[in-house]
Design a protein around this nucleic acid. Structure first.
Lengths: 367, 367
DNA sequence: CTGTTAGCGCGTTCAA
DNA sequence: TTGAACGCGCTAACAG
């Protein structure tokens, strides 16, 4: 148990402030020549144009197509825009140009470092081209997935990237009808909707089975997470099962917060399978917590029981012994997916919409 | 060193597919009575209205203000909308109503669990009220902060929540002019822009100093991160310094990837300060890696050197010995900030725009 | 190189 | 309870 010491300053009282939006209309007459924006309204392009003495469309071009305007007017317009603190309204430009310059990203959760790495890599590729990412999280639930995709489409995203596949038929239909490029990331599928970048979790499961068997293990407890609906998890298990045919494999289901592992599951393993010589966790953080739980029970890792997991993060090296894991190239997956989506968005041909980026087994102390 | 074993399946070749957007216009005549949407164009509200035999505005009301429409027409319109797979265009509705139903969230990074927890809590409060969160990350850089806020404003977010304060005067000016509710989260400030929910990192530093001194430590190495611009970090240091006046405190600067800690910094501490009896890290993950580094060098924690950090996560319990940290109520901060922002968005009065949610010292094995 | 016209899809503001 | 007109802010398409 943690020894907790609680601190809190007294509440400080701040003045209540109101953010009144949409004050009185800007006077639309051409009367005012002032360079200062109206206090309550953000300046529009027409204000910039009026003050700079050009038409609205010319002002627009100075910002979006600078090369199609004379250097002189461009300088003048940009100066006025700067002075007014003009910020283009992306909603308006998206409406008329049918390009929102936003890409929707659907993740189960961002609490898992695997997904945050994926998102950051994807965003890094897209941002230089002016695309923003719009995040939606599903909590591993297929019904929420539908809502999230729908909402993203309502915001007129130009493309959608999903970690995992679009699970429900409903969602797949939505995406097909939406007529936007789609990238399914992380796992490889036989029937991708469009772009598909990742690796075979089934192969990963098989590889880990071979790896452990080669090290003399043959009585496996395989921990799955029962409360999440994740095909990647079951693929790993299937691959493991299909490969370790001569070994004894027992599945155990955890139902704690996704990613972690209840200590009781470890107890269940030890009592139901006293001669277990390896624990394999479908989740990464679950494997880390398994090591801690075994340590707490005084069981030698890996001497008595080996532990391995899928997915890698710095935490693998924090536990003792360090965790052997199947490491996924999440950053590369994000980058590659972003590149393929950009190609689609530019209308370029793609000769290979599916890419296998493989995986690595990081052999560490726990095996 | 890790022993790495690399696997990759052969690339599988998928057919190239094109997502052609904006095909030929929907036939605007009233001729077609078909209930099936045109293959290439997403149905608009006017399509729903036409097929249901009502005006556009009535169709609109069936979706946004169901109670202002007769039950019969509502049922009819909703049925048609469902059949067509109609998805409202949020961009259009945002334009005309000046409410985008989106809240911008500015974080240094989502790789740090502290921030992902904050985001998830915030989103959970806002979503039931129809608000989406639009994420922007700054990488702890003030110049990027300005760009991110500007972009969010360009997307007409209805409110903005920032982890930390708006650092640059430029950004603060932008936010003040934007006339939207703003929440500065995590740290408490004397001059918040508007809503401010968090705790005093200065107090947290002071409390940790008192805590360690009470346990007999008095020669401190305080690790700061030199490549990030984070006032929370320096506040902790200031508070520590101001409290441990009788102790010896030496600052050490790390320049690795934010969050982690280079092993060389630990070596530097040991050589420059051989009698050090406690290492305090401004970052959470840095403290975890410090424990690992000391372990690798065969130094007893906490017997010889104690270690403590700011910010908590499951990883604190994964290292051995478990890490003593100052734990922040990030989830509560997100929840409270969301509630206050909702009040502002509804135009309700707020009698206390600043809230101190305190912190806890989690005493574990490392001290 | 610059301007005019038209309209993106929807909700507000009126009137019926 | 329903509808007509209008405009949100901006850019595509054409004209000058």
């Amino acid at each position: 148990m943690d020894n907790v010491i609680h601190y809190s300053m007294k509440h400080r009282f701040g003045a209540a402030r109101h953010g009144a939006r949409n004050g009185p209309e800007l006077d639309a007459t051409l009367a005012g020549g002032d360079l200062v924006a109206d206090g309550l309204n953000t300046p529009k392009l027409r204000d910039v144009a009026r003050i700079a003495g050009v038409s609205v469309i010319t002002a627009s071009r100075c910002i979006s197509n600078p090369e199609r305007v004379s250097e002189k007017t461009r300088a003048k317009v940009l100066k006025v825009a700067e002075e007014l603190g003009y910020i283009p309204n992306r909603l308006a430009s998206a409406m008329v140009s049918s390009r929102s310059m936003a890409v929707g990203v659907v993740l189960p959760t961002i609490a898992n470092p695997i997904h945050s790495v994926l998102l950051e890599a994807l965003a890094e590729v897209l941002e230089p081209f002016g695309y923003r990412t719009l995040l939606g999280t599903t909590g591993y639930r297929a019904d929420k997935e539908y809502d999230v995709v729908r909402t993203l489409l309502a915001h007129k995203v130009d493309a959608i990237a999903l970690a995992g596949k679009a699970q429900s038929a409903q969602t797949r239909k939505l995406l097909a009808a939406a007529n936007v490029p789609v990238a399914e990331m992380f796992e490889l599928y036989d029937d991708p909707l469009d772009i598909n970048v990742g690796l075979s979790n089934r192969e990963a499961g098989a590889a880990l089975a071979r790896f452990l068997i080669a090290r003399g293990r043959h009585r496996f407890a395989f921990v799955l997470h029962s409360e999440i609906d994740d095909s990647r998890m079951t693929s790993r298990y299937d691959g493991f099962l299909a490969t370790a045919t001569d070994a004894r494999i027992e599945p155990f289901h955890d139902s704690s917060k996704p990613g972690l592992l209840r200590e009781s599951v470890v107890s269940a393993i030890l009592s139901r399978m006293p001669d277990v010589d390896a624990i394999v966790c479908s989740g990464h953080q679950a494997a880390v917590t398994a090591i801690c739980a075994l340590r707490n029970q005084g069981i030698a890792v890996p001497a008595q029981i080996a532990v391995a997991g899928f997915g890698d993060s710095p935490a693998s090296q924090w536990v003792q012994p360090a965790l052997t894991t199947v490491s996924y190239p999440m950053s590369d997956i994000g980058t590659k997916s972003g590149q393929l989506l950009l190609a689609r968005l530019r209308g370029e041909a793609i000769d290979n919409a599916q890419a296998d980026l493989g995986f690595q087994i990081m052999e560490r102390g726990s095996t």
